[in-house]
Design a protein around this nucleic acid. Structure first.
Lengths: 216, 216
DNA sequence: CATGCTTCCATGTGATCACAAATGGACACA
DNA sequence: TGTGTCCATTTGTGATCACATGGAAGCATG
């Protein structure tokens, strides 16, 4: 409505709310690969018009979180195996560097927090909750990388997570979920010991671990 | 106008034309850091309404090519030294990997093409044409990396270039431009010799070279 | 002459609408 | 029963408009 005199201030812009909502869902695997979305549907769900919905979608397309068919239809991407391998390699490159930069700044408080998060991951595994698993797993990594004080690199890493989101859901879904996060314990041990080569190896292993499922 | 019966088919969508135009300018350093843009201005320049202009801007903001002030004003970013260091490190990480993947596929035709581009770079240096220098320099790298057959990685690298675009203009502007591309010759030599460690070192040196100017 | 306030214009935001194209299903026919 | 065609509905695109806000210029006051 044009005569919208809601004096209650909008804390954040509409397109940003839509963007954040969709981004969170995609990154955490709440939407499977190949799912179709419509601008009007998004708008209705977030109670906004098509304009902010379109802007949010454009932004997510730019980040590779959504694909646009030639006719403009919006959907989550179905990644080829080659693409998954590339994205895993990117994760490895960027996240090993982030972990390496975080290492000198990693104090006990950080390690405690990581162990707490690890407990939450085990809970999610026990509950067979794929979305919670993905979310807490990413939180583990983000908590570590925040210490690197490298926002541009972290943003890049999150963009890769975003692109892998729908696929991770499918991937972890077919995974027999009996294993607690093994490599996470190696990461924590390397942090405690100040062992940089060990940390790099542990992060690389953790990041590329899920990929093995796919190839096998 | 709503009664727009232009039967001449739009070959590509309006927002895409605007996006490509702006992106090219920013990446190639045609716009200096801190320059302000307006949606109406962009729309007038590309002869479209504000809607496609906004979509293109949103997309470029998502890619880090533009910044949005809290009040929504659009401008090219002025990067801090820490940010520049981070982006250079990202270039190094990603592009070394791309070059390494391209190496086994690099045949003579590719090396010839790279040498031709190198000639164009020298011309740009002689003409003191900063924009042409940046454009041909990036073309050199892109030509090499295309052989890696890794589109996701290449897209990441280009996003970093985009973020560095306005800064590169300022950087190469204050550079005494007497030097032909030294490290490019090392890259070509390593490609010819099939020397992977040498190639990795040459690419890393070339990518981080410009940064030295800034710190010094 | 400097500093604070006020006003006005420029600018971003979001809703709505007209239009075109594509998609999906219904229906007829082989 | 399979297949091709046609139509209706869904969907994206882009233009325009009303509104709120922020910045800059101008004015007044110390």
């Amino acid at each position: 409505m044009l005569i919208n005199s809601r004096s209650e201030a909008t804390p954040t812009s509409a397109h940003d709310r839509v963007y954040r909502g969709l981004r969170s869902r995609i990154m955490h695997g709440e939407i499977g690969p190949g799912a179709a979305l419509t601008l009007r549907g998004i708008g209705a769900e977030f109670e906004v018009s098509m304009t902010p919905a379109r802007e949010a979608v454009r932004r997510l397309v730019a980040e590779g979180a959504l694909t646009l068919s030639t006719s403009g239809r919006v959907a989550t991407p179905e990644l080829s195996n080659e693409r998954i391998e590339e994205l895993a390699a990117l994760r490895s490159l960027i996240e090993v560097e982030l972990a390496s930069r975080a290492l000198p700044r990693a104090h006990m408080a950080l390690i405690d927090r990581l162990q707490t998060i690890n407990g939450a991951i085990s809970d999610a595994v026990d509950r067979k909750d794929a979305v919670a698993y993905i979310r807490t797993n990413l939180e583990f990594h983000r908590t570590l990388y925040l210490r690197a004080q490298a926002p541009a690199m972290l943003a890049m890493a999150e963009t890769v997570w975003l692109q892998l989101g729908p696929t991770m859901r499918a991937l972890y879904g077919r995974l027999r979920r009996t294993e607690p996060p093994h490599f996470h314990r190696l990461i924590i041990a390397a942090l405690k010991a100040g062992d940089e080569p060990g940390l790099r190896l542990a992060v690389r292993s953790d990041v590329t671990q899920g990929l093995k499922m796919l190839a096998g």
